[in-house]
Design a protein around this nucleic acid. Structure first.
Lengths: 129, 129
DNA sequence: TAGTTCACTATACAAAAGTATAGTAATATT
DNA sequence: AATATTACTATACTTTTGTATAGTGAACTA
């Protein structure tokens, strides 16, 4: 488990560098990578939609309530840059463009699992007290 | 595992409600709760700092590089509202105020673990290809 | 050939998130 | 009595993020 080590995390933001020498820098990067992929209003709905099977621009636009083409386009580009989504161009006439989750994209469900678990637990604790 | 069910998630943002009837609504809430707690520029550094043992306002301010008192105050209030942090007032003269992570706050490390794991994996895949 | 679909882009704007800088009130220290 | 520390708050501003609305160009369809 990383938890013990995580206590030494975030050295980039923490000042007392001497004491945080042993901090695993790559963990900070890993957390930031993950947050970049899932933060923002539309990233998760897009990922969920792609998991759900909708993969053309139009499909996504119809499937995700109130998203504008600008946002959809922008977010898809970012997700592609981040290696989470792949844009495939099929050379039919007319060309058909499909967006697919990469392996990494699909495996982000593991993070969702952790978030669901924590969220449910937390809600129970807060309501319970 | 929640993964299979997660495919039916995000009904709040998805239009085709008939097909998503079986969606576990509480999972969506759980994910949103979790994201609320960890998103923003300063939430994780604050949580990390508190784990690390720094718990007075001044400590946190010195420990978190470049945070302004306005942001620290604002974020601590939000974290308190969300049940992640507890503000304790000790009736000494002068009063001493300490911020502590609640049980929920501490357990958010499990989410971090998942994010570290995914982030490292993802980085390896992206660099590796 | 007029209209429709697909896959976007452009421009302008509004709202949310974060920053900079200064100030306050209570107490303690010299 | 003057200065310092703690725990903040207030005001104004900038940056980032997201929205609204319209338009483009290529192909297809009636």
């Amino acid at each position: 488990m990383y938890s013990e080590l995580f206590k030494w995390l975030f050295m980039s933001r923490l000042k007392e560098m001497k004491e945080v020498k042993s901090c695993p820098r790559q963990y900070v990067l890993a957390v930031n990578d993950t947050l970049n992929v899932i933060s923002g209003k539309w990233k998760l709905p897009i990922i969920a939609s792609l998991l759900y099977g909708k993969n053309r621009f139009k499909d996504l636009q119809e499937n995700i309530d109130r998203i504008t083409p600008r946002m959809l386009s922008k977010e898809l580009k970012e997700l592609e840059l981040n290696g989470v989504v792949e844009r495939k161009v099929y050379q039919t006439r007319p060309v058909r463009i499909e967006y697919e989750l990469t392996e990494s994209g699909k495996s982000i469900l593991s993070v969702m699992d952790a978030m669901i678990e924590w969220g449910l637990d937390h809600r129970a604790k807060v309501v319970g007290t």
